[in-house]
Design a protein around this nucleic acid. Structure first.
Lengths: 263, 263
DNA sequence: GCGGCAGAATTATATGACAATCCACGCCAC
DNA sequence: GTGGCGTGGATTGTCATATAATTCTGCCGC
């Protein structure tokens, strides 16, 4: 990895030959390029991550977004890489670009919040209890209804997956499995069992919400009653009792929400 | 517009000078380039639209996705344009690319269904009653809960917007406004009044769902009872009655769903 | 003042070169 | 024959440069 970046730059220098870059400047450029490299599987994804995080953390709210040329020289990458990264940001709704006007950050209302990258940037860098609450307010809309649909439309394999998630939670109780992963497995299984692609789409959202919320709720609540609540959801789904499944799931997430409200 | 495309191509030909392109071939290339131009504000967006539609309609399920070079020559655009379009498709989850392996279409489970472009491609080209049903199953998860949150957290301006939507529906009843636009305005106002960015995100989804569902439900139902139902939602929100708002909205969308079920 | 025109800044597009990656096939040793 | 090794080729990744298109800014003429 380190070899690649320095090689590329070295080749660039030797080919042009006349560039007036000082030693320190080149070293610094190398460092930045290497950092980018670590952030993704290639330079473009590295830039995407870098710029995406910068945008969601509001670094360009009081300052114009840099031009392609500026980004390219600032991070020691070519304009192609820069452009492709910006195009991906455009596809996710974070920015829009027009000639002469430059690239401008869009209001957060037009960001695609259900994009896993955007969600990750938001959570990694701009976490707040308010955001966690909004997350779980969304879950209380989605998951109970998904459970109701799951009760109506689940297949045998779906039911197996749900039971498996439940079993993992029980195992975790006795320290044989990771409680968080088990919890996630259960909720994801229910979403998939709804047999509705739009609900299935929330897998990543729920996973992110759970992984984040654990930072706050893991040691507060006695988790013993929780498995019973989860089991109630599974039982209702198995019995094809849509209303029962909805209510049970609603209770589950309602508990989380009131826990957050206390904080 | 037409001038631009031919000019660009003409310049390309005159510069290389030696290209062995026949007359018909060049004409065809022109035509394709022009078609792309029409599909978006520039060539890249044209390609994005073209490829996106092709993917969601399953044109590459039994056939490998073409390479960058193939796409470029097939549509008479440069590799830059092709690459940027593919990068945008990557950002939306439709494809993934790796050296030597090529670009491969991802399973639809990893597509970002809440991306407005993806949604549009899906609806424009692959419409079905099943999809419409899944859409409204999603709405029955989202909108009642959004109404409940709106009851709790709405501001004065939110309430004004909701009332305005209702007024437009009443006006539409007497043919003074467009019924569909009025309906959309109401539902969007409720979503925004939830004061939760995740619910606000569904504006585009709801708008799309409504605009599409109208093709099926517009002449079937007597719309007279509908305004009363919508008003019930508004009243409950104004009274800060969360449960009432949720139930009223649930009834509203439940009606649509049972209408679809009959078809 | 105002309307249009010229210049400049920025993105959009094209082109060509080379690097990185990784698969497939063939060769060689045993 | 078979297994491992290596190498060639195909494809995306990156860089560099040139030119077109777009549109804002400011100047100039009236």
């Amino acid at each position: 990895m380190t070899i690649h970046a320095t090689q590329t730059l070295a080749v660039g220098d030797s080919r042009t030959g006349l560039r007036h870059t000082g030693f320190m400047e080149r070293v610094l450029t190398d460092v930045v390029a290497l950092e980018n490299r670590d952030l993704g599987r290639n330079l473009t994804h590295g830039m995407l991550d870098l710029l995406g995080k910068a945008i969601v953390t509001g670094q360009y709210t009081d300052r114009p977004f840099p031009t392609e040329a500026e980004i390219a020289v600032a991070h020691g990458v070519s304009r192609s890489v820069t452009r492709e990264a910006v195009k991906m940001l455009t596809a996710k709704g974070l920015v829009s670009a027009r000639p002469r006007q430059g690239t401008i950050v869009q209001p957060s209302s037009s960001w695609n919040l259900f994009d896993t990258d955007v969600l990750r940037w938001l959570l990694d860098r701009k976490f707040s209890v308010e955001l966690l609450q909004q997350f779980n307010q969304l879950r209380i809309g989605i998951e109970p209804e998904a459970a109701a649909l799951a009760a109506l439309y689940h297949t045998e394999q779906d039911m197996v997956a749900i039971e498996a998630g439940l079993a993992r939670m029980a195992a975790a109780e006795r320290s044989y499995d990771d409680p968080l992963d088990a919890d996630i497995a259960f909720h994801v299984a229910v979403l998939r069992a709804s047999r509705n692609p739009f609900y299935a789409q929330f897998q990543s959202v729920v996973e992110t919400a759970l992984r984040t919320s654990i930072r706050f709720t893991n040691r507060i609540k006695g988790r013993s009653a929780n498995i019973a609540d989860h089991a109630a959801v599974a039982v209702a789904i198995a019995a094809r009792d849509a209303d029962g499944a909805r209510d049970a799931m609603r209770r589950l997430i309602g508990d989380v929400l009131s826990l957050i409200a206390e904080a």
